[in-house]
Design a protein around this nucleic acid. Sequence first.
DNA 1: CTAATAGTGTCTATCAGACACTATTAG
DNA 2: CTAATAGTGTCTGATAGACACTATTAG
Lengths: 219, 219
Amino acid sequence: MASKADYVYRDSSGRRLIDYPRPSVAVDTALLTLAPGDDTLSVLQVKRGGERGWALPGTFLHERERLMEAVLRSLRDKAGVRGLRPRQLHVYDDPVRDDRGWVLSVAHVMVVPASLLMTRSSTTRLMPVDGPGQMPYGHGDIIAMAVADARRRYQELPDPDGLLPDRFTVLELRQVHAAVVGRDLQKDTFRRAMDPHLIGTGEMTSGTRGRPAELFQRR
Amino acid sequence: MASKADYVYRDSSGRRLIDYPRPSVAVDTALLTLAPGDDTLSVLQVKRGGERGWALPGTFLHERERLMEAVLRSLRDKAGVRGLRPRQLHVYDDPVRDDRGWVLSVAHVMVVPASLLMTRSSTTRLMPVDGPGQMPYGHGDIIAMAVADARRRYQELPDPDGLLPDRFTVLELRQVHAAVVGRDLQKDTFRRAMDPHLIGTGEMTSGTRGRPAELFQRR
DNA sequence: CTAATAGTGTCTATCAGACACTATTAG
DNA sequence: CTAATAGTGTCTGATAGACACTATTAG
């Protein structure tokens, strides 16, 4: 183990400085989504260089960059997605989790509309969160924590991450929540729980089977 | 702004490497406690070098050290406390929050027994969380987030951080929770809410005013 | 008409909050 | 005895879950 004295330097004016070796810092983001017609959550994966296979989109933090900037940069460059606002989740700090060296990873999470992730390049894919395949860098753990975080937040408020568009029916909202929390939700109980957090627009759907539904917005 | 090419190097075998400048990584910990006879939360501060005054105990991460190791090291060296297990809270990443350079801070939080912090050296002090004084490095924000986190967790379970000893009365538990959440709690409602998470020991207090109280443990 | 979906009335079991009561100790 | 604290019975209002009912559309 290195002692403190190993890292003591002097600057040009002779002032005593201590500078320890620094870790690389990465950001990795679990973008969770609901493929059309699907009723379980999927996670976006991107193809990484080398033989590392599929992983979460991520990048190394650049000099004096904010974590959120790095997250948005990685999503733009690796997944072609813009305009998101992921939440910071947890720092993964096992010094051997990355075989390229000593790398801290700041994990992020957001639930997003599937339409944003439908660029369908050969370097991105969606995989179910309960079977995402083998992943490097401990990304499986990040996905598990991301899903748990999303479940907790979707228990409380209507679509807090904005997976749905501005206006939506209660059925659409319920289907999203059922997919996130991983079980069916009763329509009457669900509606009453969400009602205080919704604003009715007075506008109705049309052209659908059955009685038209009102469109709502988040309060 | 630097371009990616600025950071491309070759190792001894000519393999292409990219290495961006790395941030220093620090850990800072909000140790919240309840001074005897007090009914509001306090936070531990330590005297920092230079004219920076009172701040949260923290340290820089050493090479390949785990964040938790660094946290425990800083609490041992700067506050003389051992055996704690703080929770990771949030990464503060404003590149100008620390005038010594580019430093990420991983904030931690735990609620601890006041007896552990009573070393009473001239380099530590306890300050109320709602008026901790001016603090450097954005530590005021960390305290606010730490208190919010502790409040949320103490709403759900009895003394999750273990501020109390192994066995305690419901009154002691209620006083702790009232201090953490910042308001009085009714004794009957509180007892019924905590009851499913407690195990009675059958042992009773004695020598106190009034009827003896049973001692409980966490389930 | 029937099928399908939207939305609501209502019953029940549970629970938080509030109040009051009993229980047990010190002095 | 009184004062103080522990612990519980019980009422009430709110709410989640469940079921059933009405409402409104397509075809």
